[in-house]
Structures are given as C-alpha cells and as structure tokens.
Design a protein around this nucleic acid. Sequence first.
RNA 1: GGCGCGAUGACAGAGUGGUUAUGUAGCGGACUGCAACUCCGUCCACGCCGGUUCGAUUCCGACUCGCGCCUCCA
Length: 461
Amino acid sequence: MLQIYNTLTKQKSAFTPLKAGEISMYVCGMTVYDYCHIGHARVMVSFDVITRFLRSQGWKVNYVRNITDVDDKILQRAKQNDESMQQLTERMIAAMHEDEKRLFVLPPDQEPRATGHIQGIIDITQILIDKGYAYAASNGDVYYRVAKFEGYGKLTNKNIDELRAGARVAINDIKENPIDFVLWKAAREGEVSWESPWGNGRPGWHIECSAMSKHCLGDNFDIHGGGPDLPFPHHENEIAQSEAANGCAFANLWMHAGAVRVNSEKMSKSLGNFFTIRDVLQQYNPEVVRLFLASVHYRSYIDYSEASLKEAKVKLERFYQALRDVSPQAAELDNKYHSQFTQAMNDDFNTPKAIAVLFELVNELNTANRQKLATAPALAAQLLSLADSIGLLQQDPTEFLQGEAKEGEISPQQIEVLIEERKVARSNKDFAESDRIRDALLQGGVVLKDTREGTSWFREG
RNA sequence: GGCGCGAUGACAGAGUGGUUAUGUAGCGGACUGCAACUCCGUCCACGCCGGUUCGAUUCCGACUCGCGCCUCCA
C-alpha cells in the first residue's frame, strides 16, 4: 500500500488517486535565469525517483513540471547580459535539459512554459475579478484580495491577521491590503508585455502555475510538488487562486522536498553559497550525485560536502564491483529483497531504507560470486531491476569503475601495458618490481585487483 | 513573535514499545607473495528531565540545543 506524507494534513496517509491506477502530478520547476544548482537537482532527482518507482509499480503517472520563463529576475538578468529575455531563457532551458539528462532524470510528460499560457492566466484573472477575489488597481496591476479567500493559510498554518501584523511586505497604497499579491503586472517601459483587459502587462509569479496546472491536469488533481521554500507564499497563493476561480479543491496532496545545506547553512541564491550542477559534474560521475541525493529521505535536509559526495562514490563502487564479475540473468528468486525494497519505497519513498536493502542484496551477491553459486546471475539481475526502478546502477560496471581519463591521467592503454609488465614480474617472482608498478599506478589513482582470471583495475576518487 | 521540523554509535543515515538497520571508518580473522576487491567475526547508540508501561531510543509532557518558513530563492 502506498503511503505519502501530505504537507496539507501534516501526516502520512494512504494514497488514494482520483482515478484508479492513475496519478496526476504537477511539480513547480525552474525559473530559468541561471544554471541549475544542487537544490534544483534535488527536486528533479527526488521527483524522478518517485515517478520511476510509481511506474515500476504499475501506476500510470502523468507528470507535469513547468518552466517559468517570464519574471522579474529573468528580465533583470537579460538586461544585465544585454540579451533578449528569450535568448536568455532558451539558453538556460537548454542547459537545464542537458543537466537533467546527465543526472538520468527522465523528462516530464509535459513541460509547459508560462509564456505559452498567457491567455489562460488572463482568463483566471478575469474569473477572479468577476467573483470578487481580485481587483484591478489604479496603476493597471491586478491584485488578489487575500482576505476574501476563507481557506487562506491552510497549507502553512498562517492566519491573515498575523500576516498583516508582521507584514514585511512593502507598503503600497495601491493595494487594499498589504498582503494582497499581484496577479497581473502593468507593463513597464521597455519590458516584455502582453495585451489584456487591464492594459498591457505580464503575469505575476503565482498565477502561471494555476493556469498551467489547470490546462494540463484539470481543476482538481492528485499531487502537487515542489522545493522547500515554496509552501509559502507560492503554493498558498496557488491554492487561493485556483480554488477561488474553479470553485473546487485544487491539489489533493502536497509534497515538498527538503533543503540542501552547505556547511550547515541553507544553500540559496541569496546567500550565494550554491553549487551548480555542472560544477559538481566536473568532479563526479552523475550517478554519484544521484545516489548522494537518494541517500537521505527526500523530506529531510541534506548536507552537501566533499565528504558526502565521496561517500556516495564509494557506495557506488561497492555496487559496481559486485556487478562487474557476473553476467546478470533474470530468474525466479524466492527471497526477501524485492518485498522489503518495495515496502520501503511505498512508505513515503524511503530511499535510504530501500538502498540499505540493495546493500544486503549485494552482500549475498558477493558471497554467491565468491562461492561460484548458480544464484549469482539471478541475484545480479534482481539488483539491477530493483535499482532500475529508482534510476540507479544502469551504467556499465567496468565503464563506471574505470571512468574516463581526465586531463593528465594515465590512459587505459598505458595501464594495460603496465599490468602486462607486472604480470611478467610476478611470474618471475620479482615482487619488488611488481609492487613498484602497482604503487606507481596507485599514485595515479589506479587501483589493481588480482583475481584468478587476471588483473582488473579501477580509478579511485 | 507566529507556524513547522529535527536531536540515533567515530561519521553519514534508516527504523522500532522487548530481537543485527545499512554504508564508510576502527579492531580481529580468511583470501593474497604482499596488497586491493571480497567474505566471516567484532567494538561504538538512541540530547536532558519527568510520566505511561512488566518493559521506552521508540508513546506523552516539560527543558536544552539546532534548523526551516513567515521577503525573491528548489
């Protein structure tokens, strides 16, 4: 039975889809004004793991993740770079797709862009005005009348009076109430804009998601997800917009990934302590990053550090070492791993526990390999199949372990030559020479492994 | 101040009302010419104080400490 934690109810409960066997899911994606960082990677990978696993269980998942391609930051950055908004966003979207692909993140089923849904945004805004939930201000902006929406704050336990009292919102005489937020922004000189009943302008930040989710999934859908800083105000505002406009419940279940920290401090754009995905991938195999992210439950914070990345690398080496010496062959197996793995994942996507099960499986596989048991190929196939359901271990073991020679590193051909020389030395019992060669390779990060069948090697991080 | 989350062995990180998490590191063995890989064994634990209970790391309450959101940020 699938159980998921719901931010709205603050508890884990059995998942019930709107349509049997199907799941409609909307996840807030990137605002494309810069390269994606590890925080983005966490959201991408978390929901990728979730989607893959659900599909492996037979769920039909319709996964939508939007792109925000018009907003203040984008306009500002484009101006700084002296390029058009479109040039900037196209460039960043291409980069994002590249990053995702490298991280083995499958594309969502639909990837709507805000600029492609301006009419939908205008339509919702008009409905909200008609129903009294929004008003056009004197300057051409349109605002949401927060106090009018009864359920405001239900996702994050806010109440309107306290929000107003603590209002760190800029005083603005144009608004009826400081906590009202903008649905439509009047065009400013030289900025991109679209025609609307309230004059030329562009969408506010929250309204696009109401429009795109409605278009792709309808008024009411199963799951809405996003990053740790989105519940307030973004998702709270989405609820206010969509439920007021549509007159029905919005998302049934809300999922939020935890934060990525660096040195125990939240990683964020404003603190400037972020690492981009491409930076990290210069140093680590993409799957290392994936395993690092999956090593912690998706709702907990995760600490980014050299040590934790290295640890993920060592873990992967253990997996691939086990897989290198056997040819997987699927066969019936009567063991506990499949059910334990599935149970862990069905329990709010407990990847750390699921991965622990994989390690137990590896242990049995290694023993089977050592003892040349007939079960080894089946165990290997089982490991691959379970790992595949969360997007892990799909690389060729030897390729993973040997890696690509980086700048200045010794090539596979050179390594093979040295291994051959060492073999000769060993057969002559010239262990001094043999050890010299091994030490020299180790200096270059290459570790040798002698087996009855011969010597293999891998690169050490 | 409001809302919410967390505190597990050397480190990372799951989980459970009474029984081994898991990975890395350490220690002792096996394998090896010696190593590496691998296997076997093993040390180290549940912030603090009360309560409930036959029994609590696990449930309840207080406390201490840490963190997130409340403002653009995944």
